[in-house]
């Protein structure tokens, strides 16, 4: 895996500068059932396509941000700080 990623603070960097935080998932708001909890803890959608994911600029400004990346091509469509990317995938702020 090798591509460029744009940190919202620092700009374009090699992906090796960053730590991957996995796909963005929603933490249950209310007390979940055991099944819901297990799904949240252990299951991932693992899509072949565009997914929203967390990235951490480990070797830079140490900011967590989100990116929308096509997992098939490693093309990063959008990046933004949490909340900036809107609710829907692929729809810009």
């Amino acid at each position: 895996m090798s591509f460029l990623l744009t940190c919202p603070h620092c700009g374009v960097r090699e992906v090796a500068d960053f730590a991957f935080g996995g796909e963005v998932s929603v933490r249950p708001r209310e007390t979940p059932t055991f099944r819901e909890l297990s799904r949240y803890n252990y299951f991932r959608r693992n899509v072949a396509g565009v997914q929203r994911e967390w990235w951490y600029h480990r070797s830079g400004c140490r900011t967590w941000f989100q990116a929308e990346r096509d997992t098939r091509t490693n093309v990063v469509l959008r990046v933004g700080l949490p909340g900036e990317l809107g609710a829907e995938l692929g729809v810009g702020p």
Partner: peptide, 20 residues
């Protein structure tokens, strides 16, 4: 731990400042 704290801080957006 620093990464863990700052991750949740980013998600929750609380009025907290973190310095390692």
């Amino acid at each position: 731990v620093e990464q863990w704290f700052s991750w949740w801080l980013a998600d929750w957006g609380m009025d907290v400042h973190l310095a390692d």
